Structure formats: structure tokens, C-alpha cells
Simulated assay, not measured.
Amino acid sequence: MSGFTWHGGRLAEARAAYGGEEWIDLSTGISPLTWPGIDDVSTDWRCLPDPRDLAEMEAAAAAHFGVDPDHVCTLPGSEMGLRLLGRMLDMPARWLVPSYRTHGEVFARGRPMVEGEEAPREAVALLLANPNNPDGRLIPPARLLEWLEGLEQAGGWLIVDEAYADAVPSCSLAGAVGDRRRLILLRSFGKFFGLAGVRLGFLVGPRAIVAAARRILGEWPVSTAAVAFGRAAYRDRAWIGDAIGLLEERAGLLDALLARHGLAARGECPLFRLVEVEDGSALFDRLARKAILTRPFEENRRWLRLGLPGGAAEWERLDRALADG
């Protein structure tokens, strides 16, 4: 189980352990609604990424986030931004749990915040995800801004991993980013647009932090294809609006499907749900034997996270697999 509890998307490992070819991957929380324009974007693989194209893509992303392009730095995936900040800030940290495993690895000095602990008012970096993973909880922006004020007074930073915020735009703190704020956001392209393999993300923060990150990453932080996909997708406002509505609708359908099988869903992020059962590892194994990959957790063996199925056939297979207990 150790590999499957580390992160999602280990289909080759699942096939080796359980057999089968036609797997349904519900382990990652990546949207099943893949942005359809990808097939219409042409890429010249012979050319290096053009700085002007990169700037246009950052402008399109910035408009989507609601910030000035000067506050946006392109990353080869948002996880790279997390690890980069650990080196750039070089200070003690606190991080909320449960959350991404990466959060506990980013800073050399620090500790997780215990349940019920108040937000720090000291010179530390407070790292959290909103929406959170794996439980899908949302922290109201007003509360985060209160935490930010306390951290700023002490010389600390608030770092918010908004990898899933495209699906819940009302939770984003992008409107609070500024040169006088000690606030840094990380955004992900692949989760909402269903294109995780593009490996595209963004750091959003004060221009001094953005400039420092750009110097470290260099002139070509991502591929020509990532630039082309990001530029076109972030400009597709109609699809983005439709996708947000459809994801909310499908999350409701997943809640209902799970409830029919006695499973109470937790979370407010429409891209995945967390269930708590007597033995999450056993449920993971039962679904895996039906070639359905989900996400178990080493830190809590009662948990299992499920992403959204794709087409009707995947919904029917999940329904049958849960019924076959």
C-alpha cells in the first residue's frame, strides 16, 4: 500500500499488482472534463519557447486569476513552486494537517499545526491548501486575511496552495495579492483543465518574489506546448464557466451515488470526495480488484478519496463495484 498512499496516479503499479487493462483512475482529483481545445493547438517542437508567447500566456492566466501579470511567474507545475519557496524564504514554517504530503517537505525547519492550534503570529511561513486536500474543506477568505495580518505584523508569510481553486473561484485570495502583502499563492493548470501531463503552474505574489523566482527558473521555465495550451485555455472563458457548473453538478451526483452505498461524502471541492469507513484499505483493495484506482492514506486507514468518474460507463462501473461488497 505504501506506493498508493504516497500520491495518486500510479496506474502502472496498480496494473502490476491487480492485473487488468481498462482501469478507471479516481486517485488524483484531476477533472474528467478535459479542455477540448487541446487538439486544435499546434506546437512547433523545433523551437524554443518564445518569451513573447510566455508573456501572453502569463497575461491570460493573470486575467483569469484576477491579478496583474507582473505578479505571476510561470512554473513547471505548482509543486515546483512549493519546493522553490522553501529555499527562497529560508525560515521556519507551520503547515496545516491533513494536507498535501509535499507541504511537510518544503521547509527545512518547521512542524505541523496540531488540531485546534491558533494561527501563528510570529515570523514563520504558514502553508496551507484552499480548497484542502484530502478532506476538501474550505477556509473562508476572511479568516485567511485575518491570519495574514497577524503573520505580516510578525514578519511572516502566508502561502496558500490554490491548486483546486479554479473549481471554487470564490475561495481564492488572488484579489489580496500585492507588493505590500506577505501573501503568496500557488496555482495549478492541469487539475481544472484535465491536463495534468502538461505540468504547468504559477506562483502569484509580490513582484519582488516573482522576480526572484523568474531568475531561478530562467527564460524557459516550461515547454512550448505548455505555453500554447495555457494561453489558449485561459482565454476560453465560456468553457471555464461551463466547466465550473458541470463539476458542481457531478460532485452532487457523486455524493448521491456514495450515499446509496452507505458512504457519507466529505468536502466542498467538486473535484473529489473523501469518505471515512471502518477499513479504507479494504475498500481500496475491493475497488482495485474491479480495476478502479482510488487514493488511500497511510496517516488514516479509515480514509479513502475518490475523484469524479468520466463518462456514463465509469459511473456505472463505480456503482456496481460499490454494490458488490
Results as ranks from 00 to 15, higher is better:
171 C>F: 03
164 Y>A: 11
166 D>L: 14
154 A>N: 12
189 F>N: 00
149 E>W: 03
177 V>A: 10
157 W>P: 10
149 E>A: 15
173 L>P: 02
173 L>W: 03
162 E>A: 06
181 R>A: 10
168 V>N: 01
157 W>G: 12
148 L>N: 11
157 W>F: 14
179 D>Y: 07
182 R>V: 07
191 K>L: 14
189 F>C: 08
179 D>T: 03
190 G>Q: 03
178 G>F: 01
177 V>Q: 08
148 L>T: 06
173 L>M: 06
154 A>V: 09
155 G>Y: 12
187 R>T: 02
158 L>V: 07
172 S>D: 04
159 I>H: 09
157 W>N: 11
154 A>H: 12
148 L>Q: 14
195 L>Q: 15
150 G>Q: 10
152 E>Q: 15
165 A>E: 00
181 R>H: 09
171 C>G: 05
148 L>K: 11
170 S>Q: 15
184 I>E: 00
185 L>A: 01
187 R>D: 01
192 F>I: 08
168 V>T: 15
145 L>P: 03
187 R>A: 09
179 D>H: 07
154 A>C: 11
169 P>G: 04
156 G>W: 08
147 W>C: 10
147 W>A: 13
151 L>V: 09
147 W>K: 06
171 C>Q: 12
178 G>D: 08
181 R>Y: 08
172 S>F: 00
153 Q>N: 10
152 E>R: 11
159 I>T: 04
190 G>K: 09
185 L>H: 02
166 D>K: 04
180 R>D: 15
175 G>F: 07
162 E>R: 00
145 L>I: 11
187 R>N: 02
169 P>W: 02
153 Q>K: 14
158 L>D: 06
183 L>H: 12
182 R>Y: 02
159 I>S: 05
189 F>A: 05
188 S>C: 14
167 A>G: 03
175 G>C: 03
165 A>T: 05
187 R>C: 00
192 F>W: 05
185 L>E: 00
182 R>L: 04
160 V>C: 05
153 Q>C: 06
145 L>Y: 05
166 D>E: 14
160 V>T: 04
150 G>R: 14
153 Q>L: 12
188 S>L: 02
162 E>W: 10
145 L>V: 12
157 W>R: 12
164 Y>N: 11
162 E>D: 10
